[in-house]
Amino acid sequence: MNDTPYLIPSEPCQYEEEIKKSVFITYLAHTPNIDAAKAFVEKIKNKHSDARHNCWGFVAGRPEDSMQWGFSDDGEPSGTAGKPILAQLSGSGVGEITAVVTRYSGGIKLGTGGLVKAYGGGVQQALKLLQTIEKKITAQLQLELDYGFMPIAQSLIGQFEGHEISAEYSDQVRMVVEIERRHVADFTQSVINKSGAKAHVTPLKGQ
């Protein structure tokens, strides 16, 4: 499993242009999974139910995970819309993203090359406007430790850019912390070393 952070959209954006009397409106949105991607496509299709074509593509997981990709020409000639849209998305390095390009036809044929350029170009321009944030892949760990080790434990949590989710205080302190998954092994080893193996670190189920 890849634990490296990746970029995702922080907010939706859109880009509109007119090419030979056809209007192309490109919508980009954050869609964390395939169901969310399909729901966003349907939302835009309903919004523009009077449009001739609502073509789309999505990268619904990590940017490089092609198992989470999908696209549709929605009635345009095969290969002229969905694939150019997906090509722009998959080449952007952004994950969990869906693009829908709505076309209101102006009656002038663009030809296959013109369509590829229009659909791919619209997404390319929209991506330039897109605001992104970094998605960190995290895991939750339970720490059991003596009160005297708390300051060192909190220092280590800060050092590894983690944060405390909860803490229970009884004869010992039981904390749940969230750490980037790629740092879990180093964090665990540091806790064990600094505590003289007195503190216990346990990954929570499902992590």
Rank of each mutant, 00 (worst) to 15 (best):
M175F: 00
S155P: 09
Q88T: 04
A81E: 07
R103Y: 01
G91V: 01
E180Q: 14
E16R: 09
G162Y: 01
W69F: 15
P203Q: 15
M1F: 05
K136F: 04
K38D: 11
K47T: 12
G111F: 02
A60G: 13
I34L: 15
S170C: 12
G93R: 04
A153S: 11
H48N: 07
N193V: 05
K194L: 04
W69V: 06
I157K: 06
D35I: 04
Q125A: 14
P32G: 05
H200W: 05
D186M: 11
P63G: 03
K20A: 06
I25P: 06
G162T: 06
N2G: 01
L115Y: 09
N46M: 09
G61C: 06
V94P: 06
E168I: 10
G111D: 11
G107L: 08
V184E: 11
V191I: 15
P151K: 01
N54A: 05
I137D: 00
K136D: 05
A87L: 09
V184I: 12
M67E: 14
A60I: 02
K83V: 05
F58T: 10
V41A: 09
K117R: 15
L110V: 12
Y119I: 02
T138S: 12
C13I: 08
A139N: 07
L156I: 05
A60M: 01
K135W: 02
V173A: 15
K109M: 10
S72T: 14
P32V: 02
K198Q: 15
L89E: 08
S155W: 01
Q124R: 08
A199N: 12
Q88E: 15
Y169F: 14
R181L: 09
I137K: 02
Q172N: 12
Q131E: 12
E76A: 06
E144A: 09
I8F: 09
D186W: 03
A29M: 03
G79A: 01
A199D: 12
A39P: 12
P151I: 03
E168C: 04
N46F: 01
A126K: 09
V191R: 06
Q124K: 10
P203A: 12
A199V: 07
P32A: 03
Q131D: 13
G196T: 07
A39F: 02
C13V: 10
E144V: 13
K117A: 08
G107T: 13
A29E: 13
V41M: 11
K194I: 01
R182I: 04
G93T: 02
E64Y: 00
P12N: 10
N46A: 10
I165G: 06
Q14R: 10
M67Y: 15
N46I: 06
E168M: 05
Q88C: 08
F71W: 13
A139F: 01
S78C: 00
D146V: 10
Q189A: 11
S166W: 01
G121E: 08
K20M: 05
G75C: 08
I19M: 10
K136I: 03
I165M: 10
K194A: 03
E168P: 11
S66C: 11
A39L: 11
L110T: 13
L143H: 02
S105G: 14
L127V: 10
L86N: 05
G158E: 09
L141W: 00
L127M: 03
G82I: 01
D146G: 14
G93S: 05
F71I: 08
G148W: 04
A29Y: 06
Q14T: 06
A185H: 14
V184W: 00
D3I: 03
